[in-house]
Amino acid sequence: MIMANNSNKNKCNVPHLRFPEFTEEWKKIRLDSFTERVMRKNKNNLSKLPLTISAQYGLVDQITFFNKVVASTDMSNYYLLKKGEFAYNKSYSSDYPWGAIKRLDNYEQGALSSLYICFAPKDNVETDFILQYFESPKWHKGVSEIAVEGARNHGLLNISVQDFFHTHHYMPKDKKEQAKIAKLLMFLDERIATQNKIIEDLKKLKSAIIEKLYSDIKGREYSYRQIFEIVNERNKQLEYLNILSASQEKGMVNREDLNLDIQFERSNINTYKIVKEGDYVIHLRSFQGGFAFSDKHGVCSPAYTILRPNDLLEFRYLSYYFTSQRFIKSLIVVTYGIRDGRSINVEEWLDMKTIIPSKERQHHIVETIRNIENKIENEEKYASCLSNQKQYLLHHLFI
């Protein structure tokens, strides 16, 4: 693959990045030139599979996706979508500012609300090519011609079906070039999926190791009150300006890393509680194992409870135990309320007992788990590189 030579003004309709054997200019055509609208109705509820569009996972079975039983509905007025056909969701988000287009790949057919725009590719285009094209930022150019900020209403883009199919797009005249571009990007998709599976399996392994290591602990029994001190040190001198937030997976993290707007909190940051390296923070979802470990200094919401361990504990030792199912189940006896309103009674929890092994054994457990965490972090970095590579290609392989 080489960079396209765009110095020739008579040959401007070519992508920035291109396979060297293709030199012909791309053509500008309307969406209805290479797709046709699908409006077949799901008569007599021929398909009983209700579909929904997920920006991340594509066209999926909404019963499985939402993990709940969907009430029996007459879907005879829904569209009957078949494998290989596409659907456009006009709902916008930061990742899909002009809505998401997805292809039905995992089922032979399904029923989709007629609120969506459905279409099928014609024979003059490689379906995998347009699948990738609709993931690229380039297709926004065509849609943005007919959609403006003021047209947005209740999270939907105000785009008519006719205008949608009249949008203009560039694509290679040669289907071989379409196929080659699609093959490259599909291969990268497969590698990204494999990498994500590696990470998922490593996380499952980590959880299994945690459950095993903390299931057969030998040592001395202590109450949590003998291990922790509740501290309420306030940030009165504005010693810290970085606000920490509790994360189920990462412990205490800088709120800025979560891309949340924290400007409104600056005026009362002096009332926030100081969190020091090695502290544990009980946050609002404590009944789900919300005991977040902090490996950094900062401040957090006054609503959180800060626990500072004494020298009975090795650094980070209980952080893994607090994420285990064994520990979460133990919280039932000190948990009150219903659903997401539940919280634990901290004073009662402090009187609960736990076994603490020797410092040497604690260190061994921490190092064992840290090793697999480092492996996960390295695999996540590689996954990020693959994702960045995909985004780069999506940006430069299309016009």
Rank of each mutant, 00 (worst) to 15 (best):
I2A: 07
I2S: 08
M3K: 15
M3G: 04
A4V: 00
N5K: 04
N5S: 07
P15M: 05
L17S: 04
R18E: 12
F19P: 10
W26E: 07
L31N: 02
D32W: 02
F34E: 12
E36W: 00
V38K: 00
R40G: 00
N44L: 07
T52V: 14
Q62T: 06
Q62S: 12
V70M: 12
S72M: 13
T73C: 08
D74Y: 09
M75D: 01
Y78T: 02
L80H: 00
K82Q: 04
K90A: 06
Y92I: 06
S93K: 06
S94Y: 11
Y96L: 05
P97N: 03
D105G: 01
N106Q: 07
G110S: 10
G110E: 02
G110A: 10
S113L: 10
L115A: 05
I117G: 02
P121N: 11
D123T: 12
N124I: 14
V125L: 07
E126P: 03
D128V: 06
I130L: 08
L131P: 01
E135T: 10
H140K: 11
K141L: 13
K141R: 14
G142S: 04
V143K: 07
E145G: 05
A151M: 15
G155V: 06
L157D: 01
T167P: 07
H169G: 02
Y170S: 02
P172F: 01
K173T: 11
K176N: 13
A179T: 07
A179M: 07
I181P: 12
A182Q: 07
A182V: 04
L184Q: 08
L188H: 05
R191P: 00
N196F: 01
N196C: 03
I199H: 01
K206P: 00
S207L: 09
K212T: 14
R220Y: 06
E221C: 10
E229M: 12
I230K: 14
V231D: 03
E233Y: 05
Q237D: 15
L238S: 09
L238W: 11
L241N: 15
S247M: 03
V253R: 08
R255D: 12
R255P: 14
E256D: 11
D261Y: 14
I262T: 15
R266Y: 15
R266I: 13
R266H: 15
S267I: 05
N268A: 14
I282D: 04
F287N: 07
Q288P: 00
F291H: 07
D295A: 09
D295P: 00
G298I: 02
P302N: 03
I306L: 03
I306D: 00
R308C: 03
P309S: 06
D311E: 09
E314Y: 06
Y321E: 04
T323I: 09
S324R: 08
S324M: 02
Q325P: 02
F327P: 01
I328L: 08
I332W: 09
R339N: 04
G341K: 07
R342C: 10
S343Y: 14
E348R: 05
W349L: 14
T354P: 09
Q362P: 12
Q362H: 05
Q362T: 11
H363R: 12
H363Q: 13
T368C: 13
I372D: 03
E373Q: 09
K375P: 00
I376K: 04
N378H: 04
K381E: 14
K381R: 11
C385W: 04
Q389Y: 01
K390E: 06
Y392C: 10
